[in-house]
Amino acid sequence: MVSININGVDKSYGQVKAVQQASFEVPGNCLFGLIGPDGAGKTTLFRMITTLLIPDQGNISVFGFDTVRDYRKIRLFTGYMPGRFSLYPDLTVGENISFYATIFGTTVKKNYHLIKPVYSLLEPFRDRLASNLSGGMKQKLALCCALIHNPKLLVLDEPTTGVDAVSRKEFWETLHQLKDSGMTILVSTPYMDEAARCDRIALMQAGRIMDQDTPGEILSKFRVPLFEIRANDRLGTLEILRSIPEIKRAYLFGQYIHIATDSERHGAEWLKTQLSNRGIANVKITPVVADFEDCFIDAVENYTTHRT
């Protein structure tokens, strides 16, 4: 079953092409991650999916409903947590949740089981104004408000931005529990490593969907040989590495230099020779496994090359 179908969608703000020719499908009961930096177009795409913006071109259907024609129906079963805190600051925690329950024609009591794991942490602050909550607490309240009407689709715009690694891990665990209860969850993040926590991901940059697949497939598609080099003079060695045409990328990584070569013929032995020919001995070269950042950078490069 497909829950969301995005078909050739464009959206511009004046001269700025925020989303260009976006097409992909989100399976039902899936935790789907939209991965990309600030300005990639993630929020614009989410606002179109949640019926808050109308595409300039293309169409989107959510559980079979068209986001333009059937927007009222979609809104009933969608929970949306925007990136910017947008609850009522002058209502208390309890009042905000009740308010959201009421506008969706339900009660806090009826769906309490859904929000319980998150809300139990907020309950001591029930009577506190939303404006006086810490960042982490605001985020939890926003999630409760997005969940209170038991949505089929939950859309979360950068819920973990600026959140520490521990709270982020806990947040992802909560999302998996919600997914297991049958929800489809669409989440965006600029943290590349969070791709691993999704069932499927799409990589987005500059308005374009560059690739989409399972996280495992994205990693296994990466074919560029990567190495870690330990040298005494890091900055000097970096300059030399960059002057070698067969080396695609070289950058500093802590005490090491990470490099990508252009083909499997150019491996560790080849590198060692290249460096010693240029007067650099005493280096330690180890192959490394690509992470999602490497894949993202590669996806940007491939996308650009194939287009131009």
């Binding site: 990309g36 930096p37 600030d38 990639a40 931005t161 600026g162 600029p190 590349m192 940059q205 890091r234 900055l235 950058y251 500093l252 950042e293 490497d294 993202f296 950078i297 940007v300």
Partner: peptide, 24 residues
Amino acid sequence: DEPTGGVDPLTRRQFWEHIYRAAA
């Protein structure tokens, strides 16, 4: 203070090079 939040990976790596050069 969280200087690289939200930037794309390539820019983040370039940013760190500026940091290393400043430290050097």
